[in-house]
Amino acid sequence: MSKVIRREIPLLLVSFSAILMILDYFFPVPVLSSSAKLTNEWVVVIAGFSLCLGATDLIIVNTRRIMRKTPGSGYALLIIISFLLTLLLGLSSPMTKHPAFQWIYDYFYRPPAGTLYGMLALYLVSAGWRAFKIRTFESVIMLVCAWFLIMANAPIAAVVWEGFPSIGKWIMDVPSAAGWRAFYIGAAIGTLALGLKVILGLERGALGE
């Protein structure tokens, strides 16, 4: 009985909700439609809670670091303080629109957010200089295509030679698109196979087993 409640019923719920969504799409039956709509709306509410799981983990991990006074526990304290401050300001009236909440977003959060991602440009250049080694025919193809595409994306290249944007466009629209099409078709088949495994209860990893 305990095994049924702990494992079998959740697996049945997975199969049931998946089949409901699929049947609703292909068979416009009022009962199916209203059940699917209700399930979807419930999932929307539940998903909000699942987004808070990460925050819970963050607080637990960083609180442990502070309690144990591990190296870097000062930064852990800073993480928790900034999280709590943002949370308090966000929940204070008007919710999500307090001027201080927006101020922190614009001047504390946005600059590092853009810069941390933008710094990858520096490492790309470094990788282009040091890591890109021509050893095989395929690596030559990769280098040549990447080079033409980089030049096609630079407006100055079109001023120097009109061929750059044309070649870049051709590479994107023909061989590259062919490769990505193959990815999509393969990934779609893989998604269907995985979906079938989930519906049949053969894939239990998502439920923490």
Binding site: L13, M21, I46, S50, G195
Partner: peptide, 11 residues
């Protein structure tokens, strides 16, 4: 709740 999320998402 995870079952509902996974099943709906899969479908």
């Amino acid at each position: 709740p995870v079952a509902l999320l996974v099943g709906t998402g899969t479908g």
